[in-house]
Design a protein around this nucleic acid. Structure first.
Lengths: 416, 416
DNA sequence: AAGTCCTTTGTGATAATTAACAAAAGGGCT
DNA sequence: AGCCCTTTTGTTAATTATCACAAAGGACTT
């Protein structure tokens, strides 16, 4: 550091305690300031100022940043960014969790994060010079924190934060993950997979407690980590034994949903489950798969009513994309068009018949039952379908195309 | 027009004949210039200059722009653009047809195009001022052309140009199309469809004549229009009767290919056929469909060997897109993975067995024959597949997913 | 070399599917 | 009403598919 810069550093020297430092930062930047440790526990906050936002109030009251604020910051990448950079980072307003515009910087010693400084941009926007100031403040905060020996209070404290790191893929090495599991006294769960429950309403505090109970006592699965995120409950699961994985998972899911519905009427819950993996860097993948299941279940609610596992999605993973393509190409299935024309001319139900027939895996008996007609009737119709639509019902390509195209038409009807 | 502008107009007054005008334009712009009528017949060309390109030489020799140059200009949208705009349009070099950089402008009377002026940018690039000059030249050319009564020579002359207009969707109204057909003494072919033959080599002049004979004498179909475009022969077809459309089309296609292969050894020919329509604005769609067939036939040559009609493509229309999605998602089919692992551990052929089984529409007998194993063997394997891969072979969604995913894996192998 | 596990093939009984035909029912038309 | 055409249903015989069980062959282990 050059002499000139040192002269301009208002944070030079000792402040005795963190409260003095935080007030000094607040004076210099003319904004409310908060200092946290690496686990988002409140260490100090500027007091001259009553301008503030609800997240800050909650943090000061609870002496800790609320979990859902931390979760959000993980999800939108703010905390990972802070972990990478030594520079201040601007965070735009996030009204859902009561965060107004603010600036954050990490306090770090030897590349390890030991805390954060938060500056609220309530009615002033920080300049480049302010950013420099903040960097100097972080430097001073570093020595203060080291003196306080807050280093001991390492990141391992929060289960939730650790889980978010796993879910967002921000833990790089296998060994690091293992270490973290050990520190939390959790046997590393392998193999594992992610289950996400999506609630129709936001999850209340009462519900949170109930959910935590439900998860902790589950006899079917190990559930070492879980977190609540707006309407979703995200759970890291591991089977007790290699056998019956599917069975115990569906037991767990069904039980969970039944219990929730019993306790909270008018609440709808659906579940999505990612693939099972053994390498921890795949936690993110499994989480994303679970979210995909939920998205598609909302879109194809009838068809996927009984489905919760990513592996069971099958063609439904593909339909959205294909629907877009067909709209673009102005594609229509010639056979279905002919059948539709025939249907409307002769008051028949060839399309519906074909649909059910294919749905029941080309089994004449089952399809006939479903259609409430005689087997011979169905056979007669199939012959008709074959003639009218110019369809070879023994050709997999044709059958699959028809199956898909009918699903796609239905999807497009739903969207319009 | 203001007096000033008129003063600056070097094309004012009478030039006596087009040759004088074209030389004047060439003098002013210092570039080679050509004037054509609406059918691309040569009317006049500047002579002071031996700088030129091969397309211009061919045009002057033949007193007409070569068909393949005109086709190219239709396909890449230059002629449609000239039809819309009164301003000069810059055309970048098209080496395939021997066109160097040039500027074109339409000569029009009452919104009707009666000719074109072409300016070669051989070693000079035209300025904005030159463009203005060219517009004035077009104005003068207009009165000259009108005097020559070239208006009589309307666009109707060229079959090929008309066909390109249809193929590229540049004829707007049904009635206009009907009129044009009548002028060419062609009974408007409805319903119609497009067949495209793709040759492995560029089509020689000898081949062109042979192809024209083959098409004109076809007993299966009406073929009022056709055009040769690089390696492709594009044909507008219409069935003689509503019945046996499919049959006569495949007869025609097979005959064509056999004849070509007999005459030209070492030449491979594949055919693609678009959907049948009745409204002429759909010619473009049918053409594009035929091209899609050809594209996919090149990609899935084994599977689509016997396929030529767009309606028969089925799932193959979708595979490219799905392959991209799966690569992006890093998707893999869990069941197939398990089966593969089992196969390599136990030297079995479960994946291949499943593939054939699904290919043969879940028919145990046919699949067993294809696999050269006993029916019971196949049944045993299917039971194994069901257990190992955790697959329900009665569930259409699962079966279709497996079918698709196996095709997609194969596609990805081919690409890599 | 014997034993084990997995796979393949053969046999035959049983169940299920398909095909052929006849009768009946319904809808539209004159 | 009577006719024609299409659709539905019932009956039966012929054909296929499915299943259980036994035997045999291969690969690998001990």
């Amino acid at each position: 550091m050059s002499e000139k810069q040192e002269d301009r550093n208002p944070f030079k020297g000792s402040f005795g305690n963190l409260e003095n430092l935080v007030d000094k930062i607040s004076d210099v930047l003319r904004c409310p300031v908060t200092i946290e440790d690496a686990n988002h526990n409140l260490l100090a906050y500027s007091s001259h100022d009553e301008r503030t936002d609800s997240a800050r109030i909650a943090t000061i009251i609870g002496r800790k940043v609320p979990e859902r604020v931390v979760n959000k910051l993980w999800k939108n990448g703010v905390i990972p960014k802070l972990a990478q950079s030594e520079d201040p980072i601007r965070v735009s307003e996030i009204t859902e969790v009561g965060l107004s515009n603010r600036i954050a910087i990490s306090i770090r010693a030897k590349n390890e994060i030991i805390g954060y400084i938060w500056v609220l941009e309530i009615d002033k926007t920080l300049s480049e010079r302010d950013f420099d100031m903040l960097k100097k403040a972080a430097e001073t905060a570093k020595s203060q924190l080291l003196q306080l020996q807050v280093r001991k209070v390492k990141k391992e404290e929060g289960h939730q934060e650790f889980f978010w790191q796993l879910l967002t893929g921000h833990l790089s090495t296998q060994s690091e993950v293992h270490e973290r599991f050990q520190r939390l006294n959790i046997k590393p769960p392998t193999p594992f997979y992610i289950i996400v429950f999506e609630f129709s309403h936001e999850i209340s505090l009462t519900a949170e407690r109930h959910i935590a109970d439900l998860i902790s006592v589950s006899p079917q699965l190990q559930t070492p980590l879980h977190v609540i995120d707006e309407n979703n409950v995200i759970i890291l699961c591991s089977p007790f034994s290699d056998k019956y994985v599917k069975f115990s998972t569906s037991e767990f899911i069904n039980n969970f949903i039944v219990q929730i519905k019993k306790r909270f009427r008018n609440t709808e819950v659906i579940a999505g489950c990612g693939k099972m993996y053994s390498a921890f860097e795949k936690i993110e993948a499994s989480y994303q798969e679970a979210l995909t299941v939920l998205r598609l279940k909302n879109q194809f609610s009838e068809d996927l009513n009984e489905t919760y596992h990513f592996d069971q999605l099958g063609i439904y993973r593909y339909l959205e994309l294909l629907s877009e393509k067909n709209l673009e190409d102005k594609y229509f299935n010639s056979s279905l068009l002919k059948l539709r024309e025939y249907d409307s001319e002769h008051n028949t139900h060839l399309v519906e018949t074909l649909n059910v027939f294919l749905q029941y895996d080309s089994n004449v008996n089952d399809a006939a039952k479903q259609l409430h007609v005689h087997t011979n009737t169905l056979n007669y119709r199939l012959k008709r379908i074959s003639e009218v639509g110019d369809i070879d019902l023994k050709c997999p390509n044709e059958k699959i195309s028809l199956f898909l195209d009918m699903k796609l038409e239905k999807l497009q009807k739903n969207i319009l």
